[in-house]
Design a protein around this nucleic acid. Structure first.
Lengths: 335, 335
DNA sequence: CTGAAAGCGCTAACAG
DNA sequence: CTGTTAGCGCTTTCAG
């Protein structure tokens, strides 16, 4: 009993395959009686339509590709659940792939997506220049950029206010009396990494606090760098009294370092992290963080994509910038 | 310039589509010269083979479906990365879906997988009875069960030694002098949930320690239940001196509860969790846990599936049981 | 309301 | 070595 086809159903119900197709796709215009026979045949033969064949003629796979740079960063899975929920509602399926921040892997993945004819693409790219997207653009496949912009092409984009978030965090620290505020930056060749630094810098300047080179360290958004750089700060002759970490993974590294060094969080050093981490509320003291609306990001991304995929011409590319929230808990103390 | 096909390439290179197909698929038997012309045509036209059309005739999509019950549990993404790496190496692509422990969602997903003709299925089912797999079995699509067995059908299975792990953990506690050992169980209608309880029970019995009903609580593998049940234990007149938590999410809940209650981990109450959590090593004291080889689980799962998909007849179903490790850190104290 | 027939882009015999 | 041709399972005119 291997895989009934539409032909089998047609024979079984004594109709043509066209009619079967009509009822499968609920196109109407079929007599109740015939429809009944067909439904019954489908049932009896355990017929399941072949989506591959359908895609072939419809030239639509009802599949969207999603590319993220790091599965191990909980931020992305959270964004992805936002996308997936919306997608499933609309009958779309997702192909989720991880580049590990490698531009080469991204190219390869993009090619596979093209081969598999995805109807749309949602991407947090590993290379914001965007040349790798040329073929996708040429094929007129809708693209939505999430969290990181694409320089080379005009595409719908949904970001969060990184400058804003970092500014708020830094100001919070300043208003509490801190002057020696260090920042552990993310990769400066990514927009989020760069912008968070900009927000920090702006706040410092606005409040007339001179920047100290030793207090500005560049990590790579991975845990290890957070750990390493926190240690570096600790061993500075002019130790900072507050630290701003540019993402969740590095925050984890920082926290481990603090604990290992015995550098008392909230007492000897104030701390704010970018992105909420699941332990934020239960470590002692609870962590003040800049939180980003992750699911929302994904939902909006899919909505934008969906419009492009269905409505033939949405004029102009849209740019969304969602606001982050400063989530004040107890890891910052007045000086 | 919308999507060149094999026909375009053939015309451009002045050969037949069959020859083009030969070079695309590297079947050999094509004169160097012709091959050159074809390659050039492909280049010039930006031709990308259409995987949908290929699947249609080859009756293989080079896609495997993966079903997991909870994306928010880091255990599963870890298993999945093991699967994906192996899969990608072999040229397979994965369709990853989450059921949220809903048997209905699982049915729906299974149907979609069938429609999309996945070549194989790796599943951690939300319903171990397995009736929902009937159609997949009928279609002779290979299945590998991971972490949870399937009762109704004989399928390749890869599990971890839950009884063993829980036994080791419990014994460790006992040997440290604990008698009042509580267990926060996972759902008892899942094998892992049940078996971990069995391991606990066996150890208790082997060492002649009577079971106390109030010390045996059933959670649902979610964080909230870990939190709630820990509180319940705390308020018991006969408070336990050690707790065994049946999974990572519940462990997080337990830890939060301990911290909120001021119930001193490692001092007033010893603790062992099933599954490593990323904060295990950096909270104070570091957590003793039963750790499972997650990536390995995924890798083996794919290997088994791959054999079934490629070799026509592998005789008999295989069952793997991987050993967990008791990772001793400092959250348990001698009494 | 229903059926016949023409593809969708590609692979796989089978001929030459 | 290369070309011709028959499908793969389904949707979609176009006729009846």
């Amino acid at each position: 009993m291997s895989k009934a086809t539409i032909v089998d159903v047609a024979k079984h119900a004594n109709v043509s395959i066209a009619t079967v197709s009509r009822v499968i796709n609920q196109l109407g215009g079929v007599r109740k009686n015939t429809e009944g026979r067909i439904l019954q045949a489908i049932e009896e033969l355990n017929y399941i339509p072949n989506a591959v064949a359908r895609s072939m003629v419809k030239k639509s796979t009802k599949t969207i590709g999603i590319i993220i740079p790091d599965v191990n960063n909980p931020f992305f899975p959270a964004v992805v659940s936002g996308i997936e929920q919306k997608a499933r509602e609309k009958g779309y399926f997702t192909l989720l792939c991880n580049t590990n921040e490698s531009a080469d892997t991204e190219r390869e993945l993009l090619r596979i997506f093209m081969e598999r004819s995805v109807d749309g693409l949602i991407i947090t790219t590993a290379d914001e220049r965007g040349d790798q997207l040329q073929t996708v653009i040429d094929a007129k496949i809708p693209i939505v950029a999430v969290d990181r912009a694409i320089k080379k092409f005009e595409v719908d984009t949904v970001l969060v206010g990184n400058i804003d978030g970092a500014y708020q965090a830094t100001r919070h620290l300043i208003l509490q009396g801190h002057q020696k505020i260090a920042i552990i930056c993310g990769s400066q060749n990514t927009t989020p990494g760069y912008e968070r630094f900009v927000g920090y810098k702006q706040a410092m300047e606005d409040y007339g606090i001179p920047l100290v080179d030793e207090h500005i360290l560049e990590g790579d958004f991975k845990e290890e760098s957070g750990n390493r750089l926190t240690r570096a700060l600790y061993h500075l002759p002019d130790r900072p009294t507050a630290i701003l970490s540019s993402n969740n993974l590095m925050t984890m590294g920082c926290l481990k370092a603090l604990s290992e060094l015995g550098w008392k969080l909230g007492e000897e050093v104030s701390f704010i992290g970018f992105d909420d981490v699941d332990i934020a509320t239960f470590i002692n003291p609870p962590l003040t963080v800049v939180s980003r609306p992750m699911r929302k990001l994904g939902e909006i991304a899919f909505d934008l994509l969906y419009e492009r995929m269905t409505r033939s011409s949405v004029q102009g590319k849209r740019h969304y910038v969602l606001s982050p929230d400063l989530n004040i808990r107890q890891s910052c103390r007045l000086r």
